[in-house]
Design a protein around this nucleic acid. Structure first.
Lengths: 222, 222, 222, 222
DNA sequence: AATGAATGAGCATTCATTCAT
DNA sequence: CATGAATGAATGCTCATTCAT
């Protein structure tokens, strides 16, 4: 009873305190979310523990309650990002079966996402992010289109190198200079030309509307 | 006899100065040459001063007689590599005027060089090397081919992203896994398809013999 | 013969070279002279070998041909300065017998010298210079004046502390801020009051003209 | 009762441990306190980080948790010393209004303090300590006495130079040689003579008993 | 859980000194 | 003698990690 009264009289706890408590409850997610921006800005090697704890607003020791090294944090961030973006992308493409359309749509979604999410884009470019889920999807759709006779390339690996390499360079360009709105679809079109589509097929693909894609909020998404 | 007299009276620049300068130049080149392998192995950020002085076999202080930071060394290595590879490449292509053939030849030489020089290849991949000389050549040949109606792409920048991105991914692949001898020309072919050449043109280009390319010796080339 | 011819063909050696050779002939003096300015600027501890060889325009090794440590150089500079200033001062006072007038004259000469020689003044202030010759003169004149009943102080040591301490602080002030021309004699007057002279005696002493004092050229004086 | 028992059983942490922990909580003060002795022994330039951490018994990193350079530490020590000595001195003179008596008392207290605190004295002498608080007090009392017609000197600055310079030389003497007990008052007397007091006034001032002065403990005072 | 002071190994940098020319 | 490249011990500084509260 006494305790109850005490807690009844205690609403001295102000708003920030409550927010803080809620945040603490998801400390791990919070560290990952804020770490993404740190990696995006400085690359995968440069940042030090101090950068992460300052970004997250936690104490040094807290960091070690969740991660034993920055590499482990990098892995967690990478996994979070891939899970998040890929699940959104796959959801958006769930009903598409044609591998050519899947590939075209995937490339376009990815590039639009990169254009709209500077932090995520920075992370991918600077960390040389290569997610197994993404790679698997790519290989499947490239194989599918090749077997269907739509593509022309000597091997899936080389086609993948062209696709991934071009996208990474394009993302790098988007990070460092202003590009027109048409940029992302122009890049997608050139990649499709690279894997062997002709002009007419490319135009038709790029004319298709893009499914809606949900932007993740990195501060809380982890 | 005449020579003897001349050498007796001439030492305006005295002997010590000349010897000193020669030795100095050799040490600097030596550090740069051995540093290339270090950067190739560990990337541009990871290596510490100790790695470089151990590789070069010089004392700590000697390093600082020539470079004030690892960044300065990285810049020197980058410049040396670009100067060296580009001057060899340009020499090999001196007599070629057709921009399409120049581009095709340049891509193929570069990839063959990467295949045969693991150290240089590692450095380029890990350091995100982008030399202004290379970029300038690329832009010129891409523009030339576009204006000649041979290529099809929306802008030189995007074509350059496809070309450079694909090459970097391919180099990365060559570093990490075994590839068949045909790999380099297959990559070159896909890039040419990407910038809009048709199959016949590509086959004709790849059938051309490559000019001889002189391999630089990094230990002394700087 | 050969020698003759050689020297006959040699007038290619230009003016700077000849000056250089002459300078080299007195390298030790030259190092000491230029080191004075270095010590004056940075104090006795801060400067490094590099500061001295850069100031003197000689090679590292040359320094070690003459001095084995910066302490040795500091000692040499100190001795040079004391020899130079004291011999000038003593020469200027050679014909004065009265210890009170000697002291008054010595103080005034010293302060005027400090005012006109920023480098020497800086050295004395920053190096805590205490030359045995100076100290001996001081003690003699203070004793003499005390025994003659002209001064009033409890011990020669304390009087010396007042005199030296005041002069050093005054020199420090001259180095860091602008002072009127009357400053040096006002300081001298206050010191004389401190050792027990009355106003009339002080006024009479300060009215005396100062003997001429020869300014040393530190670049060559050593 | 339960509480009482709990607290009774808890001091498994023994006394020395608790004392150590309390000391850690005041690490900064501890470093400053022990640094004073280091500066006193070696002067302001010579000591290296190692000297300070050895003196304080802390790790290298701990030093940098509090100070980013030895200069910053020197500043902190200087401020601590001035605050401490000046606040003690001012407290001891709080009830004195006459500027002449204030000056006389301040000089005598300072010299006695220097005589009894070898570490503090060494620091002041070697660091060329000049605290703004001290300077302000001095200027005020010198002005006051001059305006009251008790002193005779051409400017407050010159009188200050005589006073401070003499005290520093006297402190230097006390550090390097044995002096009689009468030394400090003899120095004070000569300074008072220097600023223009006559023998009778000086004798009267020096006959006054000195207020009690509390000696700071440098290991904890910061 | 969360905290952050303390730690010390690791890496960066300086500078007195040597020595071949 | 003069030179200045080379040396490496001394020193400065950072930052991942621990641990008592």
């Amino acid at each position: 009873m006494t305790n109850k009264r005490a807690s009844a009289t205690r609403p001295r706890i102000d708003h920030r305190t409550r927010v803080g408590q809620r945040r603490r409850a998801r400390t791990r997610s919070h560290i990952i979310g804020t770490a993404l921006a740190v990696f995006a800005e400085k690359g995968p090697d440069a940042p030090v523990i101090d950068d992460f704890i300052r970004a997250a607003g936690v104490a040094r020791g807290t960091f070690y309650n969740y991660f034993t090294s920055t590499q482990e944090l990098l892995d967690a961030v990478t996994k979070t990002l891939e899970d998040s973006v890929m699940s959104s992308t796959l959801a958006a493409m769930a009903h598409i079966d044609d591998p050519v359309l899947r590939l075209s749509t995937g490339i376009r979604i990815w590039l639009r996402w990169a254009q709209s999410d500077a932090i995520g884009c920075g992370f991918v470019v600077r960390s040389r992010f290569r997610g197994p889920l993404v790679e698997k999807q790519l290989a499947a759709d490239l194989s599918g289109g090749l077997e269907a006779g739509k593509f022309r390339f000597p091997s899936v690996e080389i086609a993948r190198d062209l696709l991934v390499g071009t996208i990474l360079e394009a993302m790098h360009r988007m990070m460092t200079s202003e590009v027109p709105d048409s940029f992302t679809d122009e890049v997608a079109g050139l990649i499709l030309q690279g894997v062997g589509l002709d002009k007419r097929a490319i135009d038709r693909l790029l004319a298709r509307p893009l499914p809606r894609f949900e932007q993740p909020d990195w501060e809380t998404a982890a």
